[in-house]
Amino acid sequence: MPSHAEQIIGLYERHARAFDKARGKSLFEAPWLRRFIEALPPAPSILDMGCGSGEPIGRYFIERCFALTGVDSSPSLIGLCRQRFPERDWHVADMRSLSLGRRYGGLIAWDSFFHLTADDQRRMFPAFRAHAGDRAALMFTSGPSHGEAIGSFSGEALYHASLAPSEYRALLAGHGFEVVAHRAEDPDCGGHTIWLARSR
């Protein structure tokens, strides 16, 4: 039987419409999205890794005239992105094997990266580096400490994992990123733990 981690892609595909509805369109993340934008180099393109249905975060960037590329493993969620924003670049792909052959001024993995196992998260840092241009901003959410947690969505187990903060710092530094800001369980952002870094 597949592990909870191995069922994530199928879960989001089975419940794509329910996820889109539950996600809503309010942007409690807006203060951190503004910080992300402030950290971007001039005239950047943005890669959203685990973009979901493109709302509300993708829309936030599009309405501010950023060139946006979105990647998600769910064909149904990418289908919603293409319906809503057909002029943007959308890909059905697993971020763990992503190789777009392009570099971006901004990389974001909001509420997606933390669905990967600890080992898969470690393996993502070369992918971040490979897709990051000069002085690119990288922002992702994690847990506050090392471990795994199982939530639920639509009656199914929803897997989350995190490394220790010290390991994230070491991985970022080892792949050419410097930490710009970090907040654990930010009470002004729904209890999210956020990392914002910039490539050197």
Rank of each mutant, 00 (worst) to 15 (best):
I150H: 12
S74W: 10
E178K: 10
L172D: 00
S152P: 08
W32E: 00
R88S: 10
L27A: 04
S112Q: 00
P187F: 00
K21R: 15
R102C: 14
G52V: 08
G151N: 13
G151E: 11
D119E: 15
S53I: 06
G24R: 14
G143I: 01
G54E: 00
V180Y: 07
D20G: 05
G106L: 05
G155C: 14
D89P: 06
Y104T: 03
S74I: 14
I37D: 04
E29A: 12
E38P: 04
H182P: 00
P56K: 08
D188F: 04
H4C: 09
R169I: 06
R59K: 12
R129L: 06
A197T: 07
Q121L: 05
E156K: 08
M139S: 11
E148V: 15
F61N: 05
A67G: 11
M49Y: 10
P44H: 07
A130R: 12
A5H: 09
A5E: 13
E13G: 06
R200P: 14
L33Y: 10
G176Y: 08
S26W: 13
A149Y: 14
S162W: 09
M139Q: 05
F128Y: 09
A127I: 15
S152I: 01
A39M: 02
R23S: 06
E185D: 11
Q121M: 12
A173F: 11
P2V: 03
A118P: 02
L196G: 04
A136I: 05
C81D: 04
G54P: 01
M139N: 02
M139I: 03
G176F: 07
E185N: 13
D188K: 09
A184D: 11
F19H: 11
S99A: 15
S73V: 15
A197I: 07
F36T: 05
L158T: 06
S199P: 13
S97W: 01
G176A: 09
R135A: 15
V179K: 03
A130M: 11
M95T: 13
P75M: 04
M49N: 09
F85Y: 15
A161Q: 12
V179G: 07
E13I: 08
A118H: 08
G79A: 01
S142C: 12
D20T: 13
C81Q: 03
R82D: 01
V179M: 14
Q121G: 08
A149M: 14
E55M: 14
E178C: 04
S142W: 04
G105L: 03
P41G: 08
F61T: 01
R59Q: 13
A118S: 12
